[in-house]
Nucleic acid binder design. Sequence first.
DNA 1: CACCCCATGTAAAGAGTTACATGATTTT
DNA 2: AAAATCATGTAACTCTTTACATGGGGTG
Lengths: 182, 182
Amino acid sequence: MSLTHAIMTSLLEKPCTGAELARRFDKSLGYFWQATHQQIYRELGKMELSGLIAAHGMPTARGQQRQFAVLAAGRSELASWCAQEGALRPIKDALLVRMRAAAVLGATGGDTVDILTEMRRHMLLHGEVLARYEAIEAHDFPAGSPRSAADELQLAVVRAGIAYENSWLAWCHQALAALEAG
Amino acid sequence: MSLTHAIMTSLLEKPCTGAELARRFDKSLGYFWQATHQQIYRELGKMELSGLIAAHGMPTARGQQRQFAVLAAGRSELASWCAQEGALRPIKDALLVRMRAAAVLGATGGDTVDILTEMRRHMLLHGEVLARYEAIEAHDFPAGSPRSAADELQLAVVRAGIAYENSWLAWCHQALAALEAG
DNA sequence: CACCCCATGTAAAGAGTTACATGATTTT
DNA sequence: AAAATCATGTAACTCTTTACATGGGGTG
């Protein structure tokens, strides 16, 4: 499971509390892997039990902050997961299901569903996300500054997001043109 | 939930049994929305109870084929779902988590994880999927042949897959070049 | 003190995966 | 008739989401 490993990655960068993790998952980290605070607390609990991480400070008590850090066992578990092979992520986008549904509804009974508005909406949203990613790239990886091997990896991750959003934007543009012409 | 609507879309195109649905989800339809036969049978049961679809033939009995077709209620439910707004689908790709993990493992303790091999593997796999999508486009939508409005929608869906895979391929190529240089 | 916010947590339902089971049909 | 295969289904588990609950600390 990747959530465990995403959390350990973030804790390795800097130990923190569950709430701070949830905030990170809402910001940069969460652009590539999302999690709610409920998931995070549950995983933290499991990982503590398994001895992958440890809380610096007090035992469980509501309302009390608990700072987590990765243990050696967690670090080696992360390294071993890293070396494993993973499957490609499938597309599974509801917009595409809606388009197929609109096609068959129109073809089999004359219901005409306006799917173009939804496609235009997606195009705008993809543009917004793209702008966020490009801002991250410009801010964290300015052109011309020296980059370590770790920086190169992080930059490649951001650029995956940029490529992904650019691809959707271009597709929306082209598909809308084709569908509006017909 | 989209699985319900993906199933109805497929049943509208042509009524069929659960097993045939599972086969379709393994082929063309499944390239954009995946489901196992267990999920499909569970959804079919729920949808039959809700009156969205009906089985032409015998009641529940193991081993007996049951042909499903969409009812009017199902059709209008599908149309109304089609008109709803959906959120963008987040990226959530384990390869990107592995890359960030490899970055932090290298930066904080000198563990060097070979992530390039996994990236090359993904590049090959994306190439294979792209070839499948392009074969579908060439076979089902040959250039120059007339296309209905429904055909244009279906083609746009296939091209979303092509754009998606092309984007990953280009990213893999560029990221590998950058990382191998460093 | 009353109020509000924040960090932490519980509960329940939805969605997906994996493993297994049973009746019918086909093959040998 | 035995074996293999297919269509259907159950069970258990994991992951995710949504809604709600509780304790502590700060502010008016």
